[in-house]
Amino acid sequence: MPPSTPTAPDGAAHTVRTRTVLVRRAAVVLLAVFVAAGATGTLGVRRHEVRAAGAGLEVAVTHASVTRGSMDASIEVSARRRGGLGGRLTVALPAGYLGSFTGVDPVPAPAAEQVDGDLVRWHFAVTGEQARVRIGLRAAPGAAGRQRATVTVADAAGGQVELELATWVLP
């Protein structure tokens, strides 16, 4: 006669432990909070606008304040000067900031582009009092962390404005 080997689990296993239930519920709540954060755009892509003015030049820069690897992080610059921008708008960004992004694509096509130390400058030919340019960017896959930059916007009429922006890149 072989020895008896009961297959029933231990008695304690029959009752679901309160701690287990609490941990499971907490996990579901965390999951729900995470999905809610994603649904509301908190986890990116989230855009933010900063404004500044100087010497008659008014500038608004819209950028991604939160983005994710491979996702859009474009910068849109809107400049306005009563009496006209003088035919040229220059946008400069630090090369260090641009290094965290790929697909750098200025629109419209700039009249000239130059790298000056750590700054990359795009010169756009513009007409009238208002101009809007876009620097297409995508967060590099694998990039993560907070990227900060100072955007310098200048026009041919002598105005120059500097704006601080920061972009959180989630992995």
Binding site: F34, V35, G38, G69, S70, P171
Partner: peptide, 14 residues
Amino acid sequence: DDSSATGAVLAVST
């Protein structure tokens, strides 16, 4: 085109 880890975790969590 979202190849981020956050995006993948978000999709799975949903």
